Computed example of a mutant assay.
Amino acid sequence: MKKQHQVILSIGTNQGNRLKNIVSCIDGLHNEIGTLIRVSKLYETPSWGFESEKFYNCAVVMHTHKTAHQLLDECLLLEEALGRMRSEAEGYQSRIIDIDVIAFDEEIITSDKLQVPHPEMQNRLFVLLPMKDLNLDWRHPILQMYLHELLIISEDKSNCTYIQNLDIPIAKLKLDHFNYIAIEGNIGAGKTTLTNKLAEDFNAKSVLERFADNPFLPKFYEDQSRYAFPLEMSFLADRYQQISDDLAQFDLFKDFIVADYHIFKSLIFAKVTLAEDEFRLYKTMFDIIYKEMPKPDLYIYLYQSTERLLINIKERGRSYEQEIPAAYLDKINNGYLDYIKSQKNLNVLIIDVTDRDFQSNQEDYVFILNEIQNKISGQ
Rank of each mutant, 00 (worst) to 15 (best):
S319G: 14
M285C: 08
S342R: 08
A275P: 03
P215G: 03
I37K: 13
S87Q: 08
T284S: 14
I351N: 11
L151Q: 13
M1A: 10
D201T: 07
I181H: 07
D100A: 08
Q15L: 15
I289F: 02
N57C: 03
P117R: 11
Q93W: 01
L136P: 13
R308H: 12
S360R: 13
P117A: 03
I142W: 01
I268L: 01
L281G: 11
G378Q: 08
E278F: 00
G190N: 06
L77Y: 05
E278K: 10
S319L: 02
H5V: 00
V258Y: 00
E315K: 15
F264D: 13
P230N: 10
E74N: 14
V348N: 11
A103K: 02
L337K: 13
H177P: 05
A327R: 13
Y320N: 10
H118I: 05
P296Q: 05
R124E: 03
R38L: 04
Y282H: 10
G317S: 12
N57R: 09
A248L: 03
L302G: 11
L247E: 06
E321P: 10
N361P: 05
F211P: 04
P218Q: 00
F229I: 02
V353M: 08
M62K: 06
R226Y: 07
A59T: 07
G335N: 08
E51R: 13
S305R: 07
I313M: 11
N374P: 01
F256M: 03
H69S: 09
N57M: 02
K197S: 04
A212K: 12
V353E: 05
E90D: 12
T13L: 01
H262E: 11
E88A: 12
C58V: 03
K197F: 00
V348H: 09
T273L: 00
I332Q: 06
L329Q: 10
V353Q: 06
L19A: 05
Q144I: 03
N14C: 09
S319A: 11
S266K: 12
N203R: 14
L9M: 05
V366S: 02
K172E: 01
M233R: 12
L267Q: 10
G185M: 00
S342E: 11
D238W: 04
E74W: 03
V116W: 06
Q373P: 06
R308L: 01
K54D: 14
F50G: 10
S111V: 03
F253K: 15
R139W: 00
L208H: 13
S244C: 05
K291H: 14
G83I: 01
K271Y: 02
L129K: 15
R318N: 10
